[in-house]
């Protein structure tokens, strides 16, 4: 490093390499990403937000909600389950006896107690989950053995991990989920819960609005500040506004007044309701709960 030119070249090569790797390559790989197809369906994913939800994303950005909320579900692994759908010609009691005959299999050793408990007192109601929290090999083995005796079963995939167990989502978030977000706001801190699926968890717009106005009125332990300035307190006119919040007494406005969301609040609530990442994808499979 004797001359300025050599320093310049070294720095140029170093930064240029990482620019090619972390700017150019992702743009080439993902810049042209398109909608994907939902697993075992012909639906497209993700859907573009429309109307107020699109504006709501900008409200979310403007107030910096991402400073405290992430929009990403993480998953540590996947568990498999085997669910009976039809016993064929077998009677439930015969089936239970058959299952008990399988208990000698060494690979089932860890699951015999669970299966025995779940079959205890079973009257033959279907569908019946026979085996849960297992790995793929055992689930396949079990399904094969059931098939051999004419019993129909389905093998399901369940995502595992702390985020999933908290009910924040049913699978991990993947790149496709953010295709239409502009800007993408993954967040960096969970001072509040993850919102990747808040539209699934709390699908009621009134709940969302009430929560924005007075978080403690719906979640007493909440540390979220209230966003009262997104609402208007006004005198009830000839007819009460249909949008007025229906609040518990200690949070409600004085008599003769009502609390009405401003457009921004409605947009933000619409955006929050649009946050759903609950369909199985090729890169994030899971078996949706039966409806």
């Amino acid at each position: 490093m004797k001359t300025g030119v050599s320093v310049f070249i070294a720095a140029f090569v170093a930064l240029g390499a990482s620019w090619c790797g972390f700017v150019l390559a992702p743009v080439l790989q993902l810049g042209g990403a398109k909608q994907t197809v939902v697993l075992q369906s012909t639906d497209n994913w993700p859907l573009q937000r429309i109307g107020e939800a699109t504006l709501g994303l900008q409200v979310y950005r403007a107030y910096g909600c991402a400073a405290c909320h992430s929009e990403q579900v993480r998953q540590t692994g996947a568990a498999f389950e085997v669910t009976l759908t039809s016993l064929g010609v077998q009677k439930p009691s015969d089936f239970v006896d058959f299952t008990k005959s399988l208990f000698v299999l060494p690979e089932l050793a860890d699951y015999t107690n669970a299966i025995a408990t779940s079959l205890n007192g079973w009257k033959g109601g279907l569908p019946k989950t026979l085996l849960t929290c297992t790995d793929k090999d055992i689930a396949t083995e079990m399904a094969d053995r059931l098939k051999a005796v004419g019993v129909k079963s389905e093998t399901g995939i369940i995502a595992t991990g702390a985020d999933i167990a908290r009910g924040w989502g049913s699978r991990l978030s993947v790149a496709a989920d953010y295709l239409y977000d502009q800007p993408v706001q993954l967040g960096s801190l969970r001072a509040g819960p993850d919102l990747a699926n808040i539209g699934v968890r709390a699908p009621d717009a009134n709940w969302q609005l009430q929560h924005l106005y007075a978080p403690k009125s719906v979640t007493p332990t909440s540390t979220m500040p209230s966003f009262k300035f997104l609402f208007e307190v006004r005198k009830i006119g000839a007819t009460p506004s249909p949008d007025a919040l229906n609040l518990p007494k200690e949070f409600a406005a004085a008599d003769g007044y009502e609390i009405v969301p401003k457009p921004e609040a409605k947009q933000l609530a619409a955006y929050l309701l649009s946050l759903k990442a609950n369909v199985p994808l090729y890169e994030a499979p899971f078996t949706p709960a039966a409806k």
């Binding site: 992702p26 993902l30 810049g31 990403a33 800007p183």
Partner: peptide, 14 residues
Amino acid sequence: QVPRGVVQPIIGWW
């Protein structure tokens, strides 16, 4: 003309 989807946070992290 912003790139779509997660390319944004990747560039942001870089």
